[in-house]
């Protein structure tokens, strides 16, 4: 049951705080997103800088970098995902606790970046796992990562707990397991997870 925004502000002026269970739940979720202690390439250096005192990711409740996927809710794909590393990344994503989020950080993670033509580089991690926020840059500055983090928080805030678009862990039918690609003869097999990514259609 949503409360009218204007009424809420009016009540707030009178010292009455009105909220919904969904708002409280999402407030708790977005304020305690624990990232996984996991870096892939040079973007990881910027990610480390973001957690340090100058940029201070702790302000958003995300300073607790967990070295185990079991305790983490957010995966920052910080750098180039090679085809050799992709199965491990997907497997780690599968092992993370629900609800889990992914930030694809930097040009490499979102598309392959400068190494896109390389035979051994995955052209974007969103081929295998659902990515919540993409941030461009090579590497993105810590401010960009903070921006991505705030975007993710906004996304969590707006998420309904029931009905369409609810978090995966509250939806018994939603898939919890994303198939891990295997090393094939020439490429990863399958080349993409069809439920997550489809070949984009270019409209000219």
């Amino acid at each position: 049951m949503a409360v009218d925004e204007g009424l809420k502000i009016e009540l707030g002026k009178q010292g009455v705080f009105v909220t919904t269970l969904q708002e409280l739940y999402n407030w708790g979720r977005r304020s305690s997103v624990w990232p996984m202690n996991f870096g892939l390439a040079c973007c990881a250096i910027e990610m480390i800088a973001t957690t340090m005192a100058r940029y201070d990711l702790a302000r958003f409740g995300a300073e607790v970098f967990r070295p185990s996927p079991r305790q983490a809710d957010m995966m920052i794909i910080s750098g180039t995902v090679t085809k050799k590393m992709a199965p491990q990344v997907v497997r780690l994503y599968n092992q993370m606790a629900e609800p889990r989020y992914v930030i694809a950080m930097g040009a490499c993670a979102i598309s392959g970046g400068p190494f896109k033509q390389g035979y051994n580089v995955l052209k974007g991690i969103d081929r295998y796992i659902p990515v919540d926020v993409h941030i461009p840059g090579c590497p993105p500055r810590p401010e960009a990562l903070l921006e991505a983090f705030m975007a993710l928080q906004k996304k969590i805030d707006a998420q309904p707990l029931t009905g369409e678009g609810r978090p995966r862990h509250l939806d018994a039918d939603a898939p919890g397991e994303f198939p891990v690609p295997a090393q094939g003869e020439h490429d990863l097999e399958p080349a993409a997870n069809k439920n997550v990514w489809t070949v984009p259609v270019v409209i000219r």
Binding site: Q88, R91, N94, E98, H169, L170, A172
Partner: peptide, 20 residues
Amino acid sequence: VYSPAKPNGIKNAIYECGLE
């Protein structure tokens, strides 16, 4: 009620380092 478990085969694996 609010945070039901969603286990799968990969999640229940022993290793946590990404390798099998």
